[in-house]
Design a protein around this nucleic acid. Structure first.
Length: 585
RNA sequence: GCACCCGUAGUUUAGUGGAUAGAACGUAGCGUUGCGGACGCUAAAGUCGUAGGUUCAAGUCCUACCGGGUGCACCA
């Protein structure tokens, strides 16, 4: 089915052709920022006025008259209804389109027939996308910076799925290197044989901090011990390998809870330790192709200066591999296995330069899929007194934030819920909504300064606000005894006059599919987040003003359908942000 | 030094080249015998970092500058 904005565009082209005999190329049709101007607006008259040597407003008037004469309508149940309520020319030369009440009401059938898939599309059908995200180092617990990554990556994955893509959510563990050996060394020296007390990833993280502290006072000895341990690991010394397995195993064990709490899931886990051998033949290929050269120390360096990009070392002078060595291999393996249409790397903005290098090298190597790689760069998460550093121990752990939010939410819920039987489950969901929405509502490019006092607010532009609007809607439906299936026939409501606050919700609802598309095409979850907030505001304002259960006859019936559709859109949208709704809170 | 990102009310921010820059927090008030007050309503608060330019039209595009963040060879 053709969208209204396409329909408007086509008819504008038709009108321009018939009145002025011009083939209009780019007809601009958009939603006016101020909704009182109408549902759609076009500035076509402003852009063609120069060629026509006419005043824009006159053109707009002629065009709107022409468009009205087309008497565009739609069919429902073998009756015909007008699509537009009005088409008006306005200074300085806009044409404003207001949809008819019938058309607005009819939009609800789209929600009622699609339900949980309302808003979805199939632009991605038959295409595979890899979203690589999270990528924490398995030597410490995750902090709030990882949470932001997790939320962006998992939300984008949901949005892509909703657009019909086959999405592979991939976690890539950097589990091989001296950074892991730091915790291992401390364990061996001081804690050998001990079982972790508390959450095991936190236990390992403390070993890591212990190393950094000791390193300050005794760097030379410790450096030597560390390299010795890594050398043993590389040589597959059995005792060291077992220790390595034990340490990273504890961290993974701890992360299970963190990922569950954050509602973050992966389809594929892949490990750097599995790619230590691969990648070196790509380096050789780079040398063959003249992209990279061995320098006097023996290190292999990709020469990128002529592209205005800094040179990049591909292999250390001692012949061991570094991150990029494995990363080139991983990308190639992934392409051979999945033939991806796009591959996303969700990594914070500090790695932007690295990805420019990586993508350029793969491009120069002649891999035509290098064009399909995207770095989803997001701003850093820091604290009011500066950036976090695991080394110094001044990080805010993701688990601590989540636990604190759950506690606060439990207090809140005890005050408002009569039935507290599943208060735990509810509190966890609302707490996560606060956390996820707080991170997802701003453009990913923005840096975030994490402030407890703001995250722990459950009022205003927050996740709980959205959840609350949904719970209120569900409460109305429950009291009215509305079942899952609802019949809606425009004919029953064709004489019903909509009030302004109903219209506002209808306008919100019909825009949802466009929002999903825009969010997917721009890789921006915050577009969905901001839309949902706006929709929730419309609903709450309606709720405060307009009776539903106490309305009579078809008015009551219609409003219940409207509330049901609102709830459905809210649920679908929150799902795209990785947030589960609750019926009561 | 070079490169990338960000500068919008006191604070956090939204804003596909279009009309009167939209919210939230905070501040000052108001509202529930009407269905959930985690709510609604009203008000004050903005030279959209600065200066040029492109355009019928610039918060949005271009150039320069200022301020903040980040990255620049064997860490990831």
């Amino acid at each position: 089915m053709i969208s209204v904005s396409e329909l408007i565009k086509e008819n504008i082209k038709r009108a321009v052709k018939s009145l002025y005999n011009i083939d209009a190329e780019d007809v601009n049709v958009e939603h006016p920022e101020n909704e009182s101007f109408g549902d759609f607006a076009s500035s076509i008259s402003l852009s063609i006025s120069k060629d026509l040597r006419r005043i824009p407003i006159e053109i707009a008037e002629e065009l709107s008259r022409e468009l009205l004469s087309y008497k565009l309508d739609f069919e429902s149940d073998s009756s015909y209804y007008p699509i537009f309520f009005s088409i008006e020319a306005v200074q300085p030369g806009f044409i404003n389109f207001k949809m008819s009440q019938e058309w607005l009401k009819q939009q609800l059938t789209n929600v009622l027939t699609s339900n949980s898939s309302f808003g979805s599309n199939n632009i991605g059908s038959g295409k595979t996308i890899i979203v690589e995200y999270s990528q924490p180092n398995p030597n410490k617990p995750m902090h709030i910076g990882h949470s932001r990554n997790n939320f962006i990556g998992s939300s984008l994955s949901e949005i892509f799925k909703f657009c019909g893509y086959n999405v592979i959510r991939m976690n890539y563990m950097d589990d091989w290197g001296t950074h892991i050996c730091k915790s291992m060394l401390m364990y061996k020296k001081y804690k050998d044989g001990e079982e972790p007390s508390g959450k095991p990833d936190h236990y390992v993280g403390n070993l890591y901090i212990m190393y950094e502290k000791e390193h300050e006072s005794n760097p030379t000895v410790l450096d030597k011990e560390l390299l010795e341990m890594f050398r043993k690991l590389e040589n597959h010394d059995q005792e060291t390998v077992e220790l390595w397995q034990k340490i990273v195993g504890w961290v993974y064990e701890g992360w299970v809870t963190t990922y569950q709490n954050e509602n973050v899931v992966f389809d594929v886990w892949t490990y750097q330790s599995e790619h230590t051998k691969g990648g070196k033949d790509i380096v050789n290929l780079a040398i063959e192709k003249g992209i990279a050269k061995k320098d006097e120390t023996g290190a292999v360096v990709a020469r990128l200066g002529k592209y205005g990009i800094p040179d990049k070392v591909l292999l250390r002078s001692d012949g061991t591999s570094i991150y990029i060595t494995q990363d080139t291999q991983l990308a190639r393996d992934n392409f051979e296995k999945y033939k991806f249409d796009k591959r996303f790397y969700v990594v914070d903005c500090r790695q932007s330069g690295y990805f420019v290098q990586l993508f350029k090298i793969l491009d120069l190597l002649g891999f035509d899929w290098a064009k399909r790689l995207y770095h989803i760069s997001y701003g850093t998460v820091s604290l009011p007194d500066g950036s976090m550093s695991s080394r110094l121990g001044n990080v805010v752990n993701a688990d601590d934030v989540f636990d604190k939010l759950v506690d606060l939410e439990e207090d809140e819920a005890r005050n408002s819920l009569k039935d507290v039987s599943n208060i735990k489950e509810t509190s966890r969901k609302v707490a996560l909504a606060a956390y996820r929405y707080g991170m997802l509502r701003v453009d990913s490019k923005q840096d975030i300064i994490f402030d407890y006092s703001k995250v722990t607010k459950f009022e205003g532009n927050t996740g709980p606000y959205l959840m609350y609007s949904y719970a209120r809607a569900k409460s109305l439906l429950e009291k009215a005894g509305i079942k899952e299936e609802v019949n809606f026939n425009l004919k029953l409501f064709e004489d019903l006059l909509l009030v302004e606050k109903e219209t506002l919700i209808l306008r919100g609802i019909y825009k949802f599919p466009e929002i999903v598309l825009k969010s997917a095409n721009n890789f921006m979850p915050h577009i969905v987040a901001n839309y949902l907030y706006d929709l929730a505001q419309r609903f709450n304002s309606f709720y405060a003003d307009i009776p539903v259960l106490n309305a009579k006859g078809e008015e009551r019936e219609f409003r219940l359908v409207l509330v049901k559709c609102f709830a459905q859109v809210m649920k679908n949208g929150l799902m795209l942000l990785g947030i589960d709704v609750v019926e009561k809170m």
